[in-house]
Amino acid sequence: MTDIENEKNINGSSDMMMTAYTVHEFGPPEVIRAEALEKPRPGQNEVLVKVYAAGVGPWDAWIRSGKSALPQPLPLTLGSDLSGVVEAVGPGVLHVKPGDAIYGVTNPRFIGAYADYAIAAADMVAQKPASIDHAEAASVPVIAVTALQALFQHGKLKAGDTVLIHGGAGSVGAYAIQFARKAKLNVIATAAGDDKERVKALGADKVIDYKRDRFEDMLSGVDVVIDLVGGDTQTKSFGVLKRGGRLVSAVSQPDQDLAKQFGVEAFFFLVAVNTAELQEIGAAIDSGELLQNAGLVLPITDAVKAHRMLEGELPRPKGKIVLRVRD
């Protein structure tokens, strides 16, 4: 019998308890531990989700290591992306009901999904796309909504505009290229040479090998740059924009002095996942217009291993890492 099972027996019925993967101190992946907690109850505008799969993203590592952009009081349960079945709903929840298969994120703090059950804000979940399984669905919410909001809410792109997407082979970049193609934009992406054909297949009109070529010497007059890389790539991107253009970053705050110098606008944003955009994304998936970028699926018991991959301590395959909580 495991320690968690013992704890369940000591503290009450296992029906009232669950296993969660928590941190009690900020630090390396090894601070993650399995812990028996009481199953939560949904409050106003909340749903209790029986979690089948939870996505693993870089923001999980930032939270675990104490580098989150938001206050994160300890202890906490890691994880935001999730897919599962509604177990119960709180007052005010109308668009989902017990028994519905849903996907989305837990809450604005991006915590709570690495568990048997999780509380999610009702306005941050939607019906799961019917054509994909829970593991695939858990890979979608944060990165797909980030791509959508970068292009249209912050980039304000419209048909015929030219967009440069840095990191086109990455999780967010792959979605951004597909959304841009669907919106009839002129799509340029940077990626490694061995990803060039895949990025073209996603819908990029032109792919620049960032390891071999200098995009800043090849481009000019771009309407919007979507920065998913940061660092020197972000800095060099100001020079390829037309005056009045926009640089939208999902990774770091752009230099506002440079923005003024080049006569452009530059933004950093935190994604705000919502039901309406999840519904839009789900419909695109079910219609076959949008391909997922799910990668390695690990059991939830390998949460530490998944975070070691995030940190580069272990080899990491391409695509989004997903933790399977139950079959």
Rank of each mutant, 00 (worst) to 15 (best):
K39G: 06
V49G: 00
H24Q: 15
E30L: 07
T19S: 07
N45F: 07
R33Y: 10
P28C: 10
K50P: 05
P29Q: 09
L37N: 08
E35C: 10
Q44N: 10
V51S: 01
V23M: 09
G27D: 10
E30T: 11
A20S: 15
K39T: 14
V31I: 14
E35M: 11
G27W: 09
A36K: 03
R33F: 09
R41G: 12
N45M: 08
G43D: 12
E46I: 04
V49K: 00
T19Q: 05
V47Y: 05
F26W: 09
P40G: 13
K50L: 07
A20H: 06
Q44W: 08
G27P: 06
A36Q: 15
H24E: 15
V31C: 06
E30A: 10
V49H: 01
K50V: 03
I32W: 04
K50H: 12
V23E: 00
F26D: 02
V51F: 01
T22V: 15
R33Q: 14
H24N: 15
F26N: 11
A20E: 02
Q44E: 12
M18L: 14
Q44T: 10
H24L: 07
A34I: 01
L37H: 08
R33C: 12
V49N: 02
E35H: 09
V51A: 01
Y21L: 00
Y21I: 03
T22I: 15
E25P: 04
L37Q: 14
P42Y: 02
R41K: 15
V31K: 09
T22W: 00
A34D: 08
P29K: 00
N45S: 09
K50I: 07
P28G: 11
V23Q: 02
E38R: 14
M18P: 04
N45H: 11
E38W: 06
K39C: 08
V49A: 03
K39Y: 07
N45I: 00
E38H: 13
K39R: 15
R33D: 09
R33E: 14
E30I: 07
Q44C: 04
E25Y: 06
P28H: 09
P29D: 12
K50D: 12
I32T: 02
V47C: 07
P28T: 12
T19R: 11
V49R: 01
P42I: 08
V31R: 08
E46P: 00
T22G: 04
E38T: 14
F26H: 13
K39A: 09
P40S: 14
E35G: 04
E38D: 11
L37F: 04
P40I: 14
F26I: 06
V47N: 03
E46T: 04
P28E: 13
E38Q: 15
E38L: 11
V47L: 07
V49W: 00
L48V: 05
Q44G: 08
P40K: 13
